[in-house]
Measured scan of single mutants.
Amino acid sequence: MEVRTIKVFTTVDNINLHTQVVDMSMTYGQQFGPTYLDGADVTKIKPHNSHEGKTFYVLPNDDTLRVEAFEYYHTTDPSFLGRYMSALNHTKKWKYPQVNGLTSIKWADNNCYLATALLTLQQIELKFNPPALQDAYYRARAGEAANFCALILAYCNKTVGELGDVRETMSYLFQHANLDSCKRVLNVVCKTCGQQQTTLKGVEAVMYMGTLSYEQFKKGVQIPCTCGKQATKYLVQQESPFVMMSAPPAQYELKHGTFTCASEYTGNYQCGHYKHITSKETLYCIDGALLTKSSEYKGPITDVFYKENSYTTTIK
């Protein structure tokens, strides 16, 4: 009895394709271990004539594949690729409408935090270190965002349907971005203890939790000093293409032309909904596939993004 075979390709990165001759009487799992086709788990399936010449994702289970996976995804987590594939199996079914010149995501599976993050990423200057993220990001900007969303979920250790947080998501993504040249110098002034300067680099240099107003941050924000008295913390120097200011959701007025974009969060910790506000020729609110415009805006804002380049204080 002759062994019926077909020729397929296996890959971990969709760049390096490895030619395989597979036995049609055995499952993919018996031949390769966990195997995925377009995100779908085909591990328990036997090869079919229609699979001839198709590319299958496999887990990096030998040295060659491990090197290829690390170079593309910059992670050695053995569960990463499987999590990416199972997320992709959902995100490829989502709709990605162009809204006001940006790629958004039609609401499904509690994905409003991903839509808000995706919209924000198209408006701030950011370059990702893992080629996987950078490639998928370019495709997302062009309207094909399924891979990018699935990668975000995998890097953030999230599953489809789980509630997510924009600030946490951005923080994970910033860790995989090139923020080497970003720098922030802060000064804390206390009447009792004097003053202390701190220099922050990388992710810490672009994120701040405690106030939404970048102007206020430049002037000074009140913080408790270690001595128990009130101290003032203010920005001395900022070198970065953008800054992200966050605070627990509270009524906040966004003035046209003073910011790049913002995240609105309605609801409580267990259950809520994100919308995205962007400042173009007027203010726009993007909620999944829905767009509304207004000249002014007041609502429960939790993150505001500002364009920056270089700032030095005039406070002496």
Rank of each mutant, 00 (worst) to 15 (best):
G161M: 07
C182V: 06
D63I: 11
Y137G: 03
Q222P: 14
G101P: 04
Y274M: 06
L119F: 02
N49M: 14
Y234G: 04
G220V: 03
G288V: 02
T64Y: 12
T282I: 07
V99H: 12
K7Y: 09
I223N: 05
A69W: 09
T76N: 13
M245S: 04
P300D: 11
K307M: 12
K219R: 15
L291V: 15
T103I: 13
D23W: 10
V42M: 13
P248T: 06
Q196I: 10
P248M: 08
L173T: 01
N89F: 13
D180Y: 08
F242G: 00
V22E: 09
A132N: 06
R139F: 03
D63T: 06
K46Q: 10
K201N: 11
D165L: 01
K54H: 12
T258G: 05
N309S: 13
P130G: 03
G29F: 08
E162R: 03
N157H: 07
V304L: 04
K158E: 03
S213N: 12
Q237P: 02
E144D: 14
K316F: 15
S294Y: 15
G82K: 15
N49V: 12
T192K: 10
V67E: 12
T91M: 05
S240P: 01
Y73V: 04
A250S: 13
W107C: 03
L133N: 01
L290Q: 14
N129A: 10
Y137Q: 06
Y36M: 08
S294R: 09
E2L: 11
A146K: 06
C261P: 03
V99P: 09
A177K: 00
Y265M: 04
T198N: 10
E162S: 10
E308N: 08
P131G: 06
T260C: 12
T312H: 14
V185Q: 01
F56A: 07
L290I: 14
R4G: 13
T312W: 08
E168Q: 11
D165R: 04
K229H: 12
T302F: 00
C190D: 05
A250C: 14
P78W: 10
S181W: 15
V185C: 06
D38T: 10
L114V: 11
T292D: 05
D135M: 09
R141H: 09
Y214C: 05
S171P: 00
N268G: 10
A145N: 05
V22N: 06
K7I: 13
Y73Q: 01
L37H: 14
A117N: 04
A108W: 02
P97G: 02
Q197K: 09
H48Q: 09
R83K: 11
N14A: 03
E264D: 03
V221P: 07
T103F: 09
K307R: 13
A154N: 05
Y284N: 05
L126T: 01
S171E: 10
S295M: 15
S213P: 10
P131Q: 06
T312P: 07
G143K: 04
H51Y: 07
K316I: 15
K316T: 10
D13W: 00
E308A: 06
P78K: 11
T19A: 15
G220W: 02
E239T: 12
W94T: 03
L186A: 05
D23R: 12
R167E: 03
T75K: 11
P241I: 01
E253C: 08
T260H: 03
A40Q: 14
R139Y: 09
Y214S: 03
L126R: 05
V188E: 06
F217Q: 01
F259Y: 04
Q20A: 12
Y265N: 04
I45C: 14
L65C: 08
P300S: 11
G29T: 07
F217A: 09
T10D: 14
G53E: 14
N14D: 12
A108R: 08
E204T: 01
K183S: 06
T43S: 13
A108N: 07
F80Q: 06
F174E: 00
L133I: 09
T312F: 12
S263Y: 01
T19R: 14
